[in-house]
């Protein structure tokens, strides 16, 4: 009865009321994200310095991308970044969360410690590792002085390893977030499943493989999807540590688009790069939804 009266009440009320409640959200989002986002699609088709008039040039910016070695380098680095972040932090955090889920004493302390770097500002985290990876004073140099020169590397200066060094730093701040997410998911698994497995003689690895992983599967797949999306949008740690250098060795699409727009004043081309980033993100999400619709259990 009550429910019925409630519905009547709403239908009688002014249909503008929901829009009134939504208007602040819509106004700021149209102003900041949607409007400029649509604008980018237009500017991607122009030659534009960022200020002044934009000259329409059709698809020339996209044709230029096909020939642009820096764009290729950046895209390749985004793919490498995705592969790194789909494996290293996910493996680390799954192991840590699994070990942590079995621990009663001190669980909170470990959880807080792993999570802490995630809430700290990127500029400070990056600076800490700038000092730890310093070629003359960092960990590598100290080990060399002690007679173990295996880590004596120019972490942020060597074009062969710079991307991996930055990924290491980003991962240092990121993996603890995954621990907390996976631990919460693991705590939702019915404990009687583990008991039954133990009675059947399953060891801890078998329990992890056949109970834990299937038990947190929705969370795991969702985090892998988000990891893939975020890997194509990465900006902060790379820009702070190397600005994409040396010699574009750590360039990704995010840093490249930013520098094109704000230091090289090629805003039209930068917008085109931004549009391709959105297309890639959209394709990842569509692929995910397609596979799910095809009946993949993800």
């Amino acid at each position: 009865m009550k429910n019925c009266r409630f519905k009547l009440g709403v239908s009688r009320s002014n249909p503008l009321i929901p829009w009134l409640f939504l208007s602040p959200l819509l106004i700021v989002n149209i102003l900041v994200i949607l409007g400029p986002g649509v604008g980018s699609v237009y500017f991607a088709l122009t030659k534009w310095s960022g200020l002044g008039a934009a000259e329409f040039i059709g698809l020339a910016n996209f044709a230029r991308m096909l020939e642009d070695p820096v764009y290729h380098k950046a895209l390749t680095n985004n793919v490498k970044w995705t592969i790194i972040f789909l494996t290293v932090p996910i493996a680390m955090s799954l192991v840590a969360a699994y070990l942590l889920s079995a621990v009663k004493k001190g669980q909170l302390v470990f959880r807080l410690a792993f999570f802490l770097p995630y809430v700290l500002p990127s500029v400070v985290n990056a600076h800490i590792w700038q000092t730890l990876f310093h070629p003359f004073r960092g960990i590598g140099a100290q080990l060399r002085k002690a007679g173990y020169p295996f880590l004596d590397l120019k972490f942020f200066g060597d074009t062969n390893i710079v991307l991996y060094s930055i990924a290491f730093v980003d991962n240092w701040h990121w993996w603890g977030f995954l621990v907390v997410v996976f631990l919460a998911a693991m705590q939702g698994i019915d404990p009687s499943l583990y008991e039954a497995a133990r009675i059947d003689g399953a060891n801890r690895f078998a329990q992890f493989r056949y109970i834990t992983i299937p038990g947190i599967r929705p969370t795991l797949v969702f985090m892998m999807l988000m990891t893939t999306i975020w890997s194509f949008l990465v900006f902060d740690y790379i820009y702070i540590l190397t600005q994409g250098g040396p010699a574009n060795a750590s360039e990704v699409l995010g840093t490249y688009a930013y520098k094109l727009a704000f230091t090289r004043f090629e805003a039209g081309y930068a917008a085109a790069v931004g549009v391709t980033m959105s297309i890639i993100t959209g394709m990842i999400v569509s692929l995910f939804l397609y596979l799910r619709r095809r009946g993949w259990e993800i």
Binding site: N29, L31, V32, I33, G35, P36, G37, G39, S40, F43, G50, L51, M226, I229, F232, L233, F235, L253, G254, A257, Y258, A261, F262, A267, A270, A271, V273, G274, V275, M277, S278, T281, V285
Partner: peptide, 16 residues
Amino acid sequence: AGSLPFQLFLVPLFFL
């Protein structure tokens, strides 16, 4: 909105 690249709207936003 949560998965849009900032680079998509950053340049026109700066202009605006």
